Computed example of a mutant assay.
Amino acid sequence: MVFTIFNMIAFRSSDGAMWNIAQPDRRVSFTTIPARLFTYLLENADKMVSREELLNNIWNKYGLEPSNNSVNQYISLIRKSLSELGCEEEIIKTIPRVGFYISGKLVSYNQETPPSVETTSTKAQPAIKQSRLLRGYKPALLAISLIISTLLVLQPFRFATDHLDYRFPKSTLYKIGNIATCPLYTLSASSPDIAARKEKLAAELAAAHVPCANNEVFIFHSGEHYAYQQSGRAFIIRCTNSDHTLSHFSDCKGVYAFAK
């Protein structure tokens, strides 16, 4: 089985290989346990998977004895590997005291490897239709790219006319807190722990570059790797939202951060 994740990463369950679809040379290979664990989570996308269920199906079922922190260690390894392949989205969500969750909107799968991806087989792979479409999902990075492109194109006209508002493609915003008196939103839902970390990082970026002012809102996005270790990419934009509907923004200023 080959899973497509976030429409950019492919994972083959048979041998634990995972690669960037656009750049097949960027790849990693999991050993048996992390490959088995990731496969189980992907096969159960849209379902809450408890730690006990993972321990029973990944270790106990095969007569293996897990250590006290086995699940956390391998989940961390999988997240790090996804980040190294360019996926900053929070694919595996941790639900405190409950377990782990992967949204079905982020995952599709095929019985064989897509023909555009290099494999070890000597036979040409047939064209394969995805058995599960990504229905209506707009990746957060695409939304950010559209925002930045819009600002770059329209900003010169604003200087000429001294009045121009921006309308962005519709996207769901999730409130995670406030920066001073300005509400703070993200482009994807986060666990309470991740939301708190993102709120803190967003406040630091805003204080340094785009402080809160009246009638303004912040939109922040970062990968989980950045939220926990402050390495990777993050983006914050501050906009005036005079009608308070989150659909009409003006006077936007964005800051892009990259930490190694």
Rank of each mutant, 00 (worst) to 15 (best):
S67A: 10
W59H: 13
L154V: 10
P114Q: 05
E52K: 13
I102S: 05
I128R: 04
V107E: 05
Q155A: 01
L134K: 11
P66L: 03
D46Y: 01
Y109P: 01
Q130T: 03
P156N: 06
P126H: 06
E118M: 13
T39H: 06
A127M: 12
S76V: 11
Q73I: 15
R51M: 02
L154M: 13
L133D: 08
Q130R: 07
Y62S: 11
A124N: 06
L42S: 04
L152T: 11
P114E: 03
I58G: 04
G63D: 01
D162N: 08
T113S: 15
P139S: 04
N110I: 01
F157E: 02
E65M: 05
Q155G: 02
N110W: 04
A160M: 14
F159S: 02
I95M: 09
P114S: 08
Y40K: 08
I58S: 04
S67C: 06
R51D: 01
I75V: 15
L42I: 07
Q73W: 11
S149W: 00
N60L: 14
N72R: 13
S108W: 00
L41E: 10
I102R: 10
E53P: 00
I128G: 04
Q111F: 08
L146K: 14
E84L: 14
R97L: 14
A143V: 12
T122G: 12
S121D: 11
S67Y: 04
I147F: 07
I147T: 06
L55A: 03
S70E: 07
Q125M: 01
E118H: 13
L151Q: 02
T122E: 06
D46S: 14
D162K: 10
L41H: 08
S70A: 15
S121A: 07
V117M: 15
I144Q: 10
S121G: 11
L85W: 14
K47P: 00
Q73R: 12
I144E: 03
K129R: 12
I148N: 11
Y137C: 08
L152G: 10
I128M: 09
I75G: 04
V117F: 15
I92S: 13
P156H: 03
I58Y: 03
